[in-house]
Simulated assay, not measured.
Amino acid sequence: MARYTGPKSKIARKFGEAIFGDDKSFEKRNYPPGQHGNNRRRGKKSEYAIQLMEKQKAKYTYGILERQFRNMFEKATSSQGITGEVLLQLCESRLDNVVYRMGIAPSRRGARQLVSHRHITVNGEIVNIPSYRLRAGDVIGVREKSKSLSVIQSALENSNNVYEWISWNSEKKEGTFVSIPSRIQIPENINEQFIVELYSK
């Protein structure tokens, strides 16, 4: 399964925000990486550079590689609605993202691992495809044998995120993907219009 496995803090510093979650290294050095650190003079970015960075930020945030992201953009383009908003909705509808949003895993990378290792069910059936696209009404749960895993229990104990488009039953350790979120409900700091402009060139 293809995924980014490189340094996370360096990428977070590149974009100037902790896109992979809490990061002590980023907090200490929240300036772009490079040999001259914070003293390096950085010229004004071109329009293309800004658009490219926004696309890369979205890809790293959701853990999606280029070909898959491009396919999602083409699907968003052929769908009804605003292309950029639909693109983010497709990203949010991925199984690994929803597992992370529900608090079952502390990060999207951790959520992807739980899904791949067959710890997660969708409507009672084990699904081990992180990119599986959920539909409104789907029930996502922790497999019975996996409910006692310390990594899952720890993540749930430390989770305090609440999303209007997701419901969670802590006793059953399962939740419902109530609806596809609107753009205003998606908390990620991504300017999707720049991504649309980049791919439309």
Rank of each mutant, 00 (worst) to 15 (best):
N38S: 15
G84K: 07
M72I: 10
G63A: 07
M53Y: 08
L87T: 02
A76N: 07
N39P: 06
I129H: 07
A136Q: 13
G110L: 11
R42T: 09
K55R: 12
R133W: 03
N97H: 08
T121N: 09
Q113L: 13
S93A: 14
S116Q: 14
I50T: 12
N38I: 14
S46F: 05
R112C: 01
E125L: 14
Y100W: 08
R42L: 08
T121K: 11
T121R: 11
Q68V: 07
Q51K: 14
Q56A: 01
Q51D: 13
T77F: 14
V99G: 04
N39D: 15
I120Y: 02
N39A: 15
G124Q: 12
S93C: 06
C91Y: 01
G124D: 10
A58H: 06
P32S: 09
L88F: 04
I50P: 00
L134D: 01
S78D: 13
L134I: 08
R112M: 04
N30M: 10
E54V: 09
G81K: 12
I129C: 07
V86H: 00
E125P: 03
Y60Q: 11
T77Y: 14
Q35H: 13
H119M: 14
Q80A: 14
V99Q: 05
L90K: 02
V127T: 06
S107R: 12
Q35T: 09
K45D: 07
K44E: 04
G34V: 03
K75Q: 14
G81W: 06
I104K: 06
T83Y: 01
G124K: 14
D96F: 04
A58Y: 06
Q113K: 12
I104Y: 11
G43D: 06
R112W: 02
V99Y: 01
I64L: 13
L52F: 08
N123V: 07
I50H: 07
